[in-house]
Each structure stands twice: as structure tokens, then as C-alpha cells.
Write a protein that binds this DNA or RNA. Sequence first.
DNA 1: TGGTCAATTGGCATAATAACCAAACGACAG
DNA 2: CTGTCGTTTGGTTATTATGCCAATTGACCA
Lengths: 101, 101
Amino acid sequence: MDNQERHILRTRANVLKALAHPARLWMVGQLERGERCVCELVEGLDIDFSTVSKHLLVLKNAGIVEDDKRGKQVFYSLRIPCVMNFMHCVDAVLENAKLET
Amino acid sequence: MDNQERHILRTRANVLKALAHPARLWMVGQLERGERCVCELVEGLDIDFSTVSKHLLVLKNAGIVEDDKRGKQVFYSLRIPCVMNFMHCVDAVLENAKLET
DNA sequence: TGGTCAATTGGCATAATAACCAAACGACAG
DNA sequence: CTGTCGTTTGGTTATTATGCCAATTGACCA
């Protein structure tokens, strides 16, 4: 395993890590249907405004979402619409896990 | 967001979290090419035997791999061959992130 | 200029992860 | 039975993640 492979693995893991949280997964699901301001996301989740803001920062740093400040609000949207596509594969993992246990 | 949705989000996040580590991502990549015993994986990664074993436990608990004890060795294999399919989508995230920065 | 609303930042407490070493365990060989 | 090999478990420590509260920033309105 050379340095380049190591680097690729690290960056891939970062993207996955950014998605690996229920609240962030939910947000991404919402954003799939269109942009949302932070306050809309706070309403849906039942957690602190600041916590939502930090989750969004994680997604932004991973390159998954982008933000757009318009007036007093900040709107977030998906940079990669396909991002949730593979969730079906994740669900396949879960299905399979259930069957064999 | 009802309890069922909450539950789905949590289990999905668990699968993603299990994959969200460079060493585990590498192992899954290896297992895509066929089963491997723990010692083979230890050789490829440069980390402790016990650490590898624990990583494999994480993958197993997430339903991603299964183990098969044969003689003195334990062989791990993928339960979901498609598991790495979506890595192309992850890479798309990375590509896009690079372009716009 | 003040006030207010939307959002981010800093700080802190708590929990979860990751890695190592040492010890234990199960299968097999002698 | 004893020793050894491959693996897992337990324990410890360092690092990172999460979530709340309080304080700050920025845009807009009166």
C-alpha cells in the first residue's frame, strides 16, 4: 500500500464519515428534494441550532453540500445529487444482515 | 420524523460508520477479491493484530463481512459483494469538491 | 443608531474511537 | 498433556465527535 493509495483511502473514509450520522443523513435526504435554509432543518430535527450548524459544516467540509447566504438566511444544497443513490446498497447490507442472523 | 424513520437513519448511519475508516475500507477492498484470513490482512496493513481483529469485528457487527473459522485460521469474506459499488459515487463527491475549491 | 432575526463560533462536559500491549483461548502437532 | 500458532479479549491512554449553552457576527428594519 503506497502513499497515494493511503491518501485515497483517507479521503474516501472522510466522505463516508461525514455521512455516518443520523442527523446528517436526514439532512442530506431533505436536501435531495431541494435547498433548505438552516432554520428549516432545525425544525425537522429536534436539536440545537448550533448543533445543526456544525453538522452542516461537516457536510460542507466533506464536499457534500454547499451554502449560499441570501439576506439573513443561509441556504444549503447538495453538490452531488447522486449522493444518496448508494443508500439502496446500504439497505441491501441491512436486509442481508437481518436474513442471516 | 417518526420512530421508524429515526431507526432507519440510525442503522444506515451504522453501516456507513463501519466503512468510514481507511483500514476498514482497505480490508473491504481486499475481500472484494476473495476471502482472506486475518493474518493476510495484518500483513497488508501495518498495524497490530489485535487492532485488525477489532476492525473486522466492527465490519461484522455492521453486517458487511462474515467470518469462517477453519482450523487455526479465521477467514473473512464480504456478505454484500456490491458494497464497494458506491465508492464511485464517493469519488464523484471528491472530484467535484476539488473542482470548485 | 438600536433592535432583532438567522446563523456561526467558542467553550465545555461527556461519550465514542482507535491503537497498543498483555493475557486468554481454541485448534492442532508432537 | 504441553507447546505453539492464529486469533480474540481486556485494559489503558490519547484523540476525536457530539451536543448544549453563551457569546458573536451580519443583514435587515424601524
